[in-house]
Design a protein around this nucleic acid. Structure first.
Lengths: 244, 244
DNA sequence: CGCGTCTTTGAGATCCGTCAAGGCCGGTGG
DNA sequence: CCACCGGCCTTGACGGATCTCAAAGACGCG
């Protein structure tokens, strides 16, 4: 209430912004939130639209207000590898480098809170505690990327698919219908197409599909028509992912 | 000379330390270098020794004074994926997290400048310009890791091997004997075993060896017995790596 | 010189990619 | 309301790239 004036000046909905709720802005004083917020604006994108183009100038930094985005590395011949999935409250854009080394494409409709890169970097210079928080995020991303490097380098197709499902469980568990412990009989949201999953796991859509079918026929998962997947045997899935 | 007293108090060879020369310490005032240096000590490791064990406590942060290190993710069944190579002036150790998510093993003999993690993190809190420099490094590592994610996910064995050789050229070019432009007819140092390369590229030693042989027989490279590789046709290698 | 380790090369087995056809589902228009 | 259409997903058959297993060769070290 006391600060709602400032917030209101800054952005209409700053209090609902994931930069606040998810902690990116946490610790930045209100006048300064006002300062940086004045730089930012909301942008909307439809599913399928390209937000960032690989090898183009890196011009903005953004926080995802809603929706899902895939980060893609593409080769000269069109092959593409998804190097990361982003969702609400994640950050988008390459700071401190002039060209983007990957593309960003919307999986769903997306709302972004966008800041021009250079001014944001200048702001960062005066707010080390904010940069520290970004630092932690990038380290976490590096950790996750290394995890997938292991998967792509060492695991076979069935293990990769199982690992992917477990990854879905970790991040996007909607909850189990009968209230069992997390991971068991849970329903997870999977807004990704077969092509997305294939590009992420370094497989073809056919191989992904075949492995989903195998898991379904073995009774480990149940595929719902609304892009949701029900995990019926978490332990078995875990064994598939970690053991051979 | 004026500051050599301070340096001398701090560490015997701080002026030769890669933290200075390679910029990690750059911008930190001398008394403060003294402060942090008092925390650090030199440690020596033999080739093959494990410095960090995956899933163990993350207890120190270090700068590599000399030597080469591989970062390894291992699965429960012994399979291992190299997720990064480190060399002189690179940093080692997971900051701001309690357990290491990968192992670190010496490829050559190694000298480290070691700092206990917690005090170093505390020092970092008071030196945002130092943390900023670490931030840039981690972003660069993330970028490189994504590059290899593309290689492991999308490229076939011959392309991966060619990409690996080009990567060697970028970082460790010893120079061409006849002074031609960089990359052409250059000799690169390759201190890695076939097993290392295989674990890095997600292949087997046999596949790596076969592809090296193929490149040798096609006249693109020449393998010297002292772990050096001569690049005879850089362009052809580049074509192999980027096109199919 | 002899030993062990790393590397190379070969032959066979396996997994996954490619090509192709058919099924499911939602949207559109009659 | 139903028929049609297009995109996405599934399933099958086949071939090829890579892994596995095996043996011989090269290199470094004592």
């Amino acid at each position: 209430m006391s600060d709602s004036n400032v917030i209101a000046l800054a952005t209409p909905r700053c209090s609902q912004c994931p930069m606040m709720s998810e902690g990116i802005c946490f610790g930045v004083s209100k006048p300064e939130i006002d300062e940086i917020s004045r730089l930012g604006r909301y942008r909307h994108f439809n599913a399928g639209s390209q937000i960032i183009h690989q090898d183009n100038a890196s011009e903005f930094f953004a926080v995802i207000v809603s929706g899902r985005i895939k980060l893609i590395r593409e080769g000269p011949d069109g092959r593409q590898q998804i190097v990361g999935f982003l969702s609400e409250s994640d950050c988008l854009g390459d700071l401190f480098q002039d060209v983007s080394h990957q593309s960003a494409e919307c999986i769903t409709g997306v709302v972004l809170r966008c800041f021009p890169r250079k001014p944001f970097e200048a702001f960062l210079k005066n707010h080390p505690e904010l940069e520290h928080r970004l630092f932690l995020r990038v380290m976490k991303q590096l950790d996750e990327t290394r995890e997938w490097l292991f998967a792509l380098g060492q695991q076979k197709a069935p293990e990769r698919v199982a690992s992917f499902l477990l990854w879905l469980c970790r991040g996007h568990d909607i909850g189990s219908p009968d209230g069992r412990k997390p991971g068991y009989n849970s329903v997870v949201d999977c807004p990704f197409s077969r092509q997305d999953i294939a590009d992420f796991l370094g497989l073809t859509i056919e191989t992904v599909s075949r492995n989903f079918s195998k898991l379904r026929m073995c009774g480990l998962i149940k595929l719902h028509p609304d892009k949701r997947i029900q995990i019926l045997d978490f332990d078995a899935l875990d064994r598939l992912a970690t053991a051979a």
